[in-house]
């Protein structure tokens, strides 16, 4: 099963990947590919766009139309691609720094437009590629190479951010919940509009080591033990939710999609003729 997926959807001559042993990014990449496979999309119609970071290296391994852009700019490039050719199924792969720091402005505006792009953030709470500096999602008090005394910044809840900005599908899963990522990405791809899936990843090399989170296995166990599905959470007493974070589908609404709205303007002139 796994090998068929690799054969059909990966550029196997580009593997093995560059990620560290125990990195969560590979699991998330595989889950996305699984979603595309299950949706039965023609590979020629899929376009994966990324920024810069460890996470943003993923498209290079994926056998679609792939675009590795500049740090923070994936969504701006993807907006151009989608607008120019709305038939393409556009997925953005980005990191927490890529999408919420340098690319934060593009994130909120892509969400606001409700353009039909599915964004998957590989959130490892750190800048992996540059060696462990704190990011906009590093929890307050945690350490990074540029927060040697503990991070005093308040961290973003990316899902709340995306929802507030206008995303019409918002969900979260973790690298531990690989099947769930597949399910959420599928739902996101099927949503006609801007979909935002936060995939909580692990970076044992920097985040783990800096913050004494143990090895990759321990970090994955943390993801399992500390996450609660939003649906289940409703039935749980408050004390059971302490120190936990939510996963699952948070938000789903129907709203006019951007490229369709623009097409209506184009069509109005075609009718005039």
């Amino acid at each position: 099963m796994a090998s068929a997926l690799v054969e059909n959807h990966f550029r196997s001559n580009k593997l093995p990947h560059i990620w560290c042993p125990g990195c969560g990014h590979g699991i998330i990449m595989r889950s996305i590919v699984e979603a595309i496979d299950e949706l039965g999309y023609n590979k020629d119609d899929v376009c994966v766009v990324s920024g810069i970071g460890c996470s943003s290296r993923a498209p290079g391994y994926m056998d679609y139309n792939t675009l590795h852009t500049l740090h923070g700019r994936a969504l701006a490039y993807a907006t151009g691609v989608k607008m120019a050719n709305p038939k393409l199924k556009v997925i953005v792969i980005t990191g927490d720094g890529d999408c919420a720091a340098i690319g934060g402005n593009h994130l909120i505006h892509a969400a606001r437009r409700n353009i039909d792009i599915t964004t998957v953030v590989f959130n490892n709470n750190i800048y992996g590629m540059t060696g462990g500096q704190y990011s906009p999602t590093t929890p307050t008090g945690e350490k990074g190479t540029t927060a040697p005394f503990g991070n005093i910044d308040k961290n973003f809840d990316l899902c709340n951010l995306a929802k507030a900005a206008g995303a019409t599908y918002v969900a979260r899963a973790t690298a531990y919940h690989a099947n769930m990522i597949t399910k959420l990405v599928k739902a996101g791809m099927e949503n006609k509009g801007f979909s935002f899936v936060e995939a909580v990843s692990v970076c044992p090399t920097y985040y783990g080591r800096k913050n004494k989170k143990g090895d990759a296995v321990q970090m994955m166990r943390y993801l399992k033990d500390s996450s609660v599905n939003v649906k289940a959470a409703k039935k749980l007493p408050k004390e059971k939710l302490e120190g936990k974070f939510f996963i699952g589908e948070f938000h789903k609404v129907e709203e006019p999609e951007y490229t369709e709205q623009y097409q209506k303007i184009i069509d109005s002139f075609q009718k005039e003729r």
Binding site: T69, L70, R73, A76, T79, G80, V81, M83, A84, N105
Partner: peptide, 17 residues
């Protein structure tokens, strides 16, 4: 777009199609 960076980025993306 939301700024000039996004303006040229979208322009490059569109050219690729």
């Amino acid at each position: 777009m939301e700024d000039e960076i996004a303006g040229i980025a979208a322009t490059i993306g569109a050219s690729l199609t």
